[in-house]
């Protein structure tokens, strides 16, 4: 059995271009059949299409495959793109630059460089060691987890491209400005002593001669790892969303998370800090809040706070940062997020 399947499993790496073309065609084919398929499924079930339940089911049957399809496609592409932007290469691009434009670069590279929060500390030290300025390092560290393809895809799929684009723009802005401010404050002395005493290393870039086939493999690996991990959250989130669409009164949240009350934004940020979850985990909550009339600025502030400021990550960072620098980091990022929340609520 395995002897028969093994060559089949390996052909994408051998014929990468052919595989990509076929995959793109199959992807769009599937995407176009989503609406008719969802309608057909509901039509088969013994439920009135126009009833609450019928609406909720149609929503669920349409949104679940749509989100999973989008996520798989984008994570696959990002997995391939990530194979060009290794942390070593990103570090070499940033090393020795002065602040300002470098903060912008660092925040942008944060989107495309693969990042896992368990690597935050080695990455941090590696950057500082190679002479990347502290503020620039922070721009990267803030942007990398907050502005990622999973968060953006989910926002785009569930709330439209405007919300996705807004989140992208604001996340980058917070990362750039917060990093720049931390750089201005000249806080290098508040690194833990052993970090400051580490020998300076050159930011060398290793050989990178991956074939297209190997990059495809990187794409597959990303899909296995990311989509394999987040799909239960997504299905759960859409189920909650579907139920809310049918059953919860429309202005339930508006009374205490609407835009009229000034204290909702800080409250959202404070609640978000101790919560530790990935973008996929927080989307169901965001979905529920928005659907019930919570203000967009408040909800985005909550989401950014959950992802960018997490208590466990602070505990990890404490190994390399002295308390004063951690406090500054939290204060600067939290202010940025607060501002985003208020601006949004005021403008929209």
């Amino acid at each position: 059995m395995d002897a028969v399947l093994a060559p089949l499993r390996r052909w994408p790496s051998r014929q990468p271009l052919l595989f990509l073309l076929l995959a793109v065609a199959a992807w769009f084919g599937l995407y176009l059949t989503l609406t008719p398929a969802a309608e057909a499924l509901v039509a088969v079930l013994p439920v009135e299409r126009d009833s609450h339940l019928g609406g909720a089911l149609q929503f669920f049957f349409y949104d679940t495959p749509k989100v999973l399809l989008l996520l798989t496609g984008i994570v696959f592409i990002m997995g391939m793109v990530n194979s060009w932007f290794t942390p070593e290469r990103t570090r070499a691009l940033l090393a020795g630059r002065t602040e300002g434009m470098a903060n912008v670069m660092a925040a942008s590279l944060g989107i495309v460089t693969p990042f896992c929060s368990c690597s935050a500390v080695p990455l941090f030290i590696g950057f500082v060691q190679a002479g990347v300025p502290l503020g620039v390092t922070f721009s990267f560290l803030i942007s990398a987890p907050m502005v990622n393809e999973v968060a953006l895809t989910l926002l785009f799929a569930l709330f439209g491209w405007e919300v996705g684009l807004l989140y992208l723009g604001l996340g980058l802005t917070v990362a750039i400005v917060a990093g720049w401010v931390i750089g201005r404050l000249k806080m290098e002395v508040y690194l833990e002593d052993w970090v400051r005493d580490m020998p300076h290393t050159a930011a060398a870039v290793g050989e990178d001669r991956l074939s297209l086939g190997e990059r495809l493999d990187a794409g597959f690996a990303a899909v296995r790892e990311i989509v394999g991990k987040v799909w239960p959250y997504i299905i759960g989130g859409i189920a909650i969303g579907a139920a809310i669409h049918g059953y919860v009164p429309g202005d339930f949240m508006a009374s205490f998370m609407g835009r009229d009350a000034w204290w909702t934004v800080p409250l959202a940020v404070v609640i978000g800090v101790p919560m530790y979850t990935n973008a996929a985990g927080v989307i169901p909550i965001v979905q529920a809040l928005l659907a019930k009339g919570a203000a967009l600025g408040t909800v985005l502030a909550f989401m950014m706070s959950v992802i960018a400021l997490s208590l466990p990550e602070m505990v990890i960072l404490r190994k390399v940062l002295k308390p004063r620098l951690i406090a500054t980091f939290i204060a600067v990022v939290a202010s940025g997020i607060l501002l985003v929340g208020y601006v949004f609520n005021a403008v929209l």
């Binding site: 942390p87 693969p114 896992c116 080695p122 030290i125 060691q129 190994k319």
Partner: peptide, 27 residues
């Protein structure tokens, strides 16, 4: 231990070192 990990110049974990040489970093 972080200082020891950093001595290998690895920026993403897990890293793998075989007979003193880093062969892998990240994932």
């Amino acid at each position: 231990a972080l200082p020891e990990i950093m001595r290998y110049g690895v920026m993403s974990t897990p890293g793998v070192v075989i007979d003193g040489k880093v062969v892998h970093a990240g994932g």
